[in-house]
Simulated assay, not measured.
Amino acid sequence: MTTTAATRPTFSVDLWWIPRAIVLGLLAFAIFGPLANLVLWTVTERWYFPHALPLEYGVSYWGRVFSPRGTAMESLTNSVVVAFLTVALAMALAVPAGYALARLKLPWRALIMLAFLIPQAFPNLPVYVNIARLFYQFGLNGTVAGVVLVHVTHGLVYAVWIATAAFSAIDRELEDAARSIGASPLRTFRDVTLPLAAPGLLASAIFVFLESLDEFTGSYFVGAPDVNTMPLLLYTASSGGNYQIASITAVLLLIPSVGFMLVVERFLKSDVLSKVGH
């Protein structure tokens, strides 16, 4: 039995995987390269140019960070306390504001929504310099209350916009059904509206918490040096050339950010996201 050229199997090699692999490799390096370098610095004892890898590994700098004489625990405590207070105040303002913007026929509604973006529309530096001058007149500089107020002004846009989207995504007929069987407006809001909006409100609170946890400029101009936070500690360590302390601080800030973003991805549904800005 003979095999003709027409029936002979042919083999082809797809060479498109080469540029794809190069692009994916470069993208992975751009994303994970800095993170790998950050993690490597956290376990480095000695590392200097021109060596590509650390000369000595260890965890002694972790002990320095969490030692009683260090400021890391104080900074971490301040950051967490300020973040929780910021969330409490921002959500206390955002829940009624979001419900009103979602349910009431307010005049100039679009302009009101746009007004919450004003703190984001200008460079942070001149805004916080002027806020610091204003707070100095009222004795708020160097206080936790002053830092919380600055963080609230910065995070309120996320709180209000996401809260408005969460309430807008709720079917009005569910509220009308509760009212038709005798529920008061307050009970309807408490038993129907608020539980349905809870996932979106939780996502909003997490965004505000992470924004407060990572806020540097406002904390620097209003709180430093009396209210020391983790971003301020990170800045101080980096400017002083202590990359081990700076890297450990960055990792401590990165862990809750990644964890909370996974929670946001689970609870912030597509129907809520479609209502943001509407």
Rank of each mutant, 00 (worst) to 15 (best):
S239M: 07
F221L: 15
A224M: 02
S204A: 15
L201I: 13
L213E: 02
V263N: 06
V258C: 03
V192H: 11
G240D: 03
A237R: 00
A224R: 15
V208L: 02
G259N: 13
L268M: 13
V222H: 15
D191Y: 12
D226L: 02
E215V: 11
S238W: 11
S212P: 14
L254N: 06
L254H: 07
A198L: 12
L202H: 09
Q244P: 05
I248N: 08
F267D: 03
L234C: 01
V258S: 03
S238H: 11
L253W: 01
S238V: 02
I248L: 13
L268T: 06
R266Y: 11
S239A: 08
A205S: 07
V208K: 09
P199C: 05
S239Y: 05
R190M: 08
L262E: 07
G218I: 05
T217G: 10
V208I: 15
N242Y: 04
T236W: 07
I248A: 10
F260C: 07
G241L: 00
L254S: 13
A250F: 01
D226W: 12
T217W: 04
L196N: 05
L210V: 07
N228T: 10
G241I: 00
V192G: 08
A237G: 01
I255Q: 00
V227L: 05
V222F: 14
E211A: 13
F267Y: 13
G241R: 00
I206F: 15
N228V: 12
F216I: 12
D191W: 13
A203S: 14
